[in-house]
Amino acid sequence: MNVTAAMTGSQPRRRTPKGPLVLDTRELGRRPGSMRPVRTQVELPADLGTEMMWVAPGATGTLDLRLESVIEGVLVSGTVVAPLQGECARCLEGLSDVGTVELRELFYYPDRAADMSQEDEDVRVLVDDHADLAPVVRDALVLDLPLSPTCRPDCAGLCVDCGARLDDVGPDHSHARSDPRWAALSGLAQDTPTGAEQGPLDPDENKEKE
């Protein structure tokens, strides 16, 4: 921890954020009502998504945003469009989609944020007049993704016996299954000796041979 910051009770200085989703707001100034549109394409971070649906590494997203200066800071609103890829939760086939999320986030000026509770982790703060949208986009996109995506609503999934994709093998696909109760009886029959293995059934036959 910075010794000077600890003695004065102030927070240590943050480094200027960098990355494709960092927006420079210096052109707005601090005059409430100033507005600037941002329409651009950027390379999205590779860690966006879930186990079943995610943004492909190196994928390009489209930003259509508006930066607006307000008393507390800079309000960022608009949409982010991201190409997605993943796996069908039923048949595990690859699939692709396009995700569109709405953003509306207020980035506070540092002096305004200092007056707020330090326990509020959701407060976004401008650092050197730069707004880092990466965590905002990540939260919005991940919450919008389906937990169990499907290649189509009526996907039949996989055969539980052989793993074949049921939409490929057709409705007549099946496997012969024996009743486990009959299987147990069959096992008992195989263990029971028959014919000569059983020996004479009449105990008097043994006396005659003697």
Rank of each mutant, 00 (worst) to 15 (best):
D154T: 04
E51D: 15
G170C: 01
V169Y: 00
G61L: 03
P20Q: 03
S34D: 15
P57T: 13
D132S: 03
D64W: 00
V3C: 14
G157K: 00
L95D: 07
D122G: 07
L95A: 05
T100R: 15
T100I: 14
M35C: 15
R124V: 02
D120Q: 08
P149R: 09
R112L: 12
T62V: 11
S10Q: 15
A189N: 12
E205P: 03
L103V: 10
R30Y: 06
M52E: 14
G49Y: 07
S34H: 14
V123P: 01
P180K: 00
E87T: 12
T16W: 02
V101T: 14
A183M: 13
N206A: 12
C88Y: 02
A6K: 11
L188H: 11
E43F: 12
L143R: 04
A82R: 12
R165S: 01
G199M: 06
P171T: 10
R30C: 02
P153C: 05
M1D: 13
R177P: 04
N206D: 11
E102M: 11
C159P: 00
P180Q: 02
E68L: 07
D202M: 05
P12T: 04
G58M: 05
K18G: 15
L92V: 02
P180A: 03
D115Q: 14
C88H: 02
S69G: 10
P149N: 08
D64R: 11
S34K: 15
P37Y: 10
L84T: 11
G86Q: 03
Y108K: 04
P193T: 03
D191Q: 14
G49S: 08
T50H: 08
T40Q: 09
R104M: 13
V127C: 03
P45H: 05
D179M: 08
E197I: 10
T16M: 03
E27M: 09
D111M: 11
A184D: 04
R152D: 04
D24M: 03
A156Q: 01
M35H: 15
G157E: 01
R104W: 11
P110Y: 04
D191A: 13
P45S: 05
C159M: 00
L185D: 06
G58A: 06
T4L: 15
V137H: 06
H130M: 10
N206I: 13
R14I: 12
E27G: 14
R112F: 11
